[in-house]
Amino acid sequence: MTNKTIEERCSFNTQRLSVSSWTNQLKEPDSEKNLAEKVIEILTPNVTKALPDGWQNISTIVGAQEWINERDEESHFLTVRLLKTNETIGFIFLYEADSEQKYDDLRFGYLLSEKVWGKGLGTELIEGLINWCKAEGDIKRISGGVESDNIGSIKVLEKTGFIASTVDNPTEDVVFYEYQFDI
């Protein structure tokens, strides 16, 4: 394992997607404003309905920049872009679970813009994340929660090999899924 953070290490492409640290976008002209505009565009009420208050009603550049900074402080924050157009269409958030080895147990969350729902990109994204974890070789498990009525995300997780978590207990509203790696 290198001394790089998981955010620095996690970068991958799939057939249609490119995933990397949000800071990679800051190298482009007008990048901070462009990323903030994308946050506003992506975080629609349908996308954020089950998320905490700090994820709701992001409608200004300043509010979006604050949201970006908060995500960066609490997680390893990655952008999901379409390879063909380089447009940001979503985000992945990686969290290190409490563990003796820093990266062997990761929690994650993801969200995609409504305009790309139903096109197989969620499945492609999660398959890409799984493949990246396998290539890393030191990640034993990834897990994440999903609202019990979010049938689309549940199908994505189940289709990509996730099973109901044996570690995380579900709540009335949230079901947890995990993927175990053989290392």
Results as ranks from 00 to 15, higher is better:
M1F: 14
M1W: 11
I6F: 12
R9I: 07
R9T: 04
F12E: 05
T14M: 08
R16H: 15
L17A: 03
L17D: 04
V19P: 11
S20C: 11
N24G: 09
N24K: 14
Q25I: 06
S31R: 00
N34C: 02
N34P: 00
I40P: 01
L43G: 07
L43S: 01
P45M: 07
P45R: 03
P45H: 06
T48A: 12
T48L: 01
K49W: 05
A50E: 15
G54W: 13
W55K: 01
N57A: 09
N57S: 11
T60R: 01
I61T: 13
V62S: 15
E66W: 08
D72N: 11
F77I: 03
L78W: 06
T79S: 07
L82W: 10
L82K: 14
T85H: 04
E87I: 08
T88P: 02
T88I: 14
T88N: 06
I89M: 07
I89F: 08
I89N: 06
G90D: 02
F91Q: 11
F93E: 12
A97D: 11
D98N: 13
D98Q: 15
S99K: 09
E100F: 14
Q101P: 00
Q101F: 14
K102F: 11
Y103F: 15
Y103I: 08
D104T: 05
D105W: 06
L111Q: 01
L111W: 02
L111T: 00
S113D: 15
K115R: 12
V116Q: 00
W117G: 03
G120N: 05
L121A: 03
L121D: 02
G122T: 04
I130K: 12
W132C: 03
C133G: 00
C133Y: 09
E136V: 05
G137K: 09
D138E: 15
D138F: 13
D138C: 02
K140I: 11
I142Q: 01
S143I: 05
S143H: 13
G144N: 02
G144D: 10
E147T: 11
D149N: 14
N150R: 03
L157I: 00
K159I: 08
F162P: 00
A164W: 09
T171H: 04
D173A: 11
D173W: 11
D173T: 13
Y179K: 15
Q180Y: 11
F181E: 07
F181W: 02
D182C: 10
